[in-house]
Design a protein around this nucleic acid. Structure first.
Lengths: 246, 246
DNA sequence: TTAGGACGAATTGTATACATTGGTGAAGGT
DNA sequence: ACCTTCACCAATGTATACAATTCGTCCTAA
C-alpha cells in the first residue's frame, strides 16, 4: 500500500528509506508495545473502544496486523474482545480485582522468599536504583511515572528470581493491576508504595526471607485496601433488582 | 472452499440446514480445542511442524483462522512461532522444564493450602471421582487417558479454589508439563501419580493444610525427578565442544 | 402517536490475492 | 571436485476484497 505515492498517512511510515528500514516483521511488536504502554499508563481508560480501522490507519498498517495485536492484548487480559462488537480496554470486575491481588500475594511472596536466599549485590543495586527513580518521580509529583516505576520494581523483583515462567505471571498481574487502579482508585489515594518498597529492599539486604515476605504481603494488601473501599461503584444486577413478582 | 459439494471434511460444516447451524464465530474455538487436545495427548510430538495450509484444508477453513489459533497456542506456550519459518509444537528446554515445575510447586501449594481451609464435601467428591477414573484407566493400562485425568485432577484442584487467575496459571502449567513429559519421560517411568493423588485428597479430607501442601510438593517433585534424570538428552553445544584452540 | 419492521451505514469476520522470505538444487566458473 | 550464484519453489507475511452482523434511523401502518 505504501507504493501509492500520494498516500499521506503512510508517507512518513514508508519514509524509512535512508534509515535502516525497519523490517516489517517487527512492526506488530512495536504496535503492541505502544498500545500496551498507553493502557498501562492510563492514557486510554478502561472500556475505551479500540476500533480496528482507526488503529490501522493510525499506525499505517492493515487491519490484519491490528487484529493480531488486539488478540494478543486480549490474551494478556488487557483488552476485552466482544464478538461482532469490537475490542475494548478491559474493565476488570471487583471480583476479578480481588483474585488478581490474591494471585499476586501468592506468586510474589514465593518469588521474594526465593530472592532473599539468592539475591546478590548487583540485584540489590538494581532495585535501589528503581527506588531512587521512584522517589524522584514522587518529588516531581509525576504520577504516571511513579505508577510505571512502581510496576517496574515488582517486575525487576520477578526477573531477579531467575524464573521466566513466574516472571511472566507477575508481568501479567502487574499490568492487570494497573487497569484495576485506573478503574477503582479513590481520588485521595495515599502515596503508599515508596516506603513499603524500601522495607522490602531492606529485608532483602539482610537476607531475611520472613521479613521480606511480610513486607511484600503488607505492601500488596495495602494497595488492595485502597481500591477495595470503592466496593460497589458499578453495574447493578437489574435482573435481580427488578425481579417480576410471581 | 466448502462450496465444493464433494468435499467430505467440510460437508458437515456447510450442512447448516436442519441442525442448529454451528455459527462460524465459534469455529476457531473448536479448532483450537482439537489441536490443543492433540498436543496435550501426545498425538502430535514436540517439534512437529504445523503447516498453515495443511491445517486450513484439514479443518475446511482459510489460513486466517488457522493463524489465529496458532497465535493463541503460541501464547499458551504450546507452539513455537518462528518468523518466516512456521509454527512448531513447542520443545521446552530442560531449564524451561525446571522453571515450570518450580512455578507449579509455588502456585499449586498456595492453592492447596487455601483449599484445605475452604473445600466442601462436593469438592472432595469431585476429586474422588477423578481419582477413581484414573484408577480405572490404570487397570486398563490406558496411558493417554491416565495422563489426561492426571492433568484434570490438578485442574479441578485449581478450579475448586475459586480463583480464576490462578486456575488459568495452573492450566497453562499443566499443559506445558504434558509437553515436557512427552519430551523427557524415561521409557520405564514409574506410574506414580495414583497413590500421591490419593494422599492429597486424604489430607484435604482432614482439612490438614500442612499435610496437603507436603503431599502436593512431594508429588510434584516426584514427577520432576522422573524427567530430570534424562538431563542432557538433546542438543550439544558444538560451539563450546569444538572450541578452536587459541 | 407509537410499535414494528425494513433499509443503510459502520464495523467486524473471513477468504483470497499478492508480496516476501528461506531453502533447495542446478549451472557455471575457478 | 568445490564453492559460488542464481533461479525457482514452497510457505509465511500482509493487504485487500467480500460477507455477515449490529445498531441506528426512518418510514409505514394501526
Amino acid at each position: 500500500m505504501q507504493r501509492v505515492p500520494g498516500a499521506t498517512t503512510s508517507a512518513d511510515k514508508s519514509d524509512r528509506s535512508g534509515v535502516a528500514r525497519k523490517r516489517a516483521g517487527r512492526a506488530d511488536e512495536r504496535i503492541h508495545s505502544e498500545i500496551y504502554a498507553a493502557i498501562i499508563n492510563h492514557q486510554i481508560r478502561p472500556a475505551t473502544p479500540l476500533q480496528e480501522d482507526a488503529l490501522a490507519t493510525a499506525f499505517g498498517v492493515s487491519r490484519t496486523i491490528i487484529r493480531k495485536v488486539l488478540q494478543r492484548l486480549a490474551h494478556e487480559k488487557l483488552v476485552d474482545l466482544i464478538p461482532n462488537k469490537g475490542a475494548f480496554v478491559a474493565r476488570p470486575s471487583i471480583e476479578e480485582a480481588r483474585q488478581v491481588f490474591e494471585a499476586r500475594r501468592g506468586v510474589e511472596c514465593i518469588l521474594i522468599e526465593k530472592l532473599a536466599a539468592t539475591i546478590g549485590d548487583a540485584g540489590i543495586g538494581r532495585l535501589t536504583d528503581l527506588l531512587d527513580a521512584e522517589a524522584e518521580a514522587l518529588t516531581r509529583n509525576d504520577k504516571k511515572r511513579r505508577l510505571q516505576l512502581s510496576g517496574d520494581f515488582h517486575l525487576e523483583l520477578a526477573a531477579l528470581a531467575g524464573n521466566a515462567v513466574l516472571r511472566d505471571f507477575v508481568q501479567e498481574l502487574v499490568s492487570r493491576t494497573s487497569l484495576i487502579i485506573a478503574l477503582y482508585e479513590s481520588p485521595g489515594a495515599v502515596p503508599c508504595s515508596q516506603s513499603e518498597h524500601r522495607d522490602i529492599i531492606d529485608a532483602l539486604k539482610q537476607r531475611d526471607a520472613k521479613a521480606a515476605v511480610r513486607a511484600m504481603e503488607h505492601h500488596l494488601r495495602h494497595i488492595e485496601a485502597q481500591i477495595d473501599l470503592a466496593d460497589q461503584p458499578s453495574r447493578v444486577d437489574f435482573a435481580a433488582l427488578f425481579k417480576p413478582v410471581a
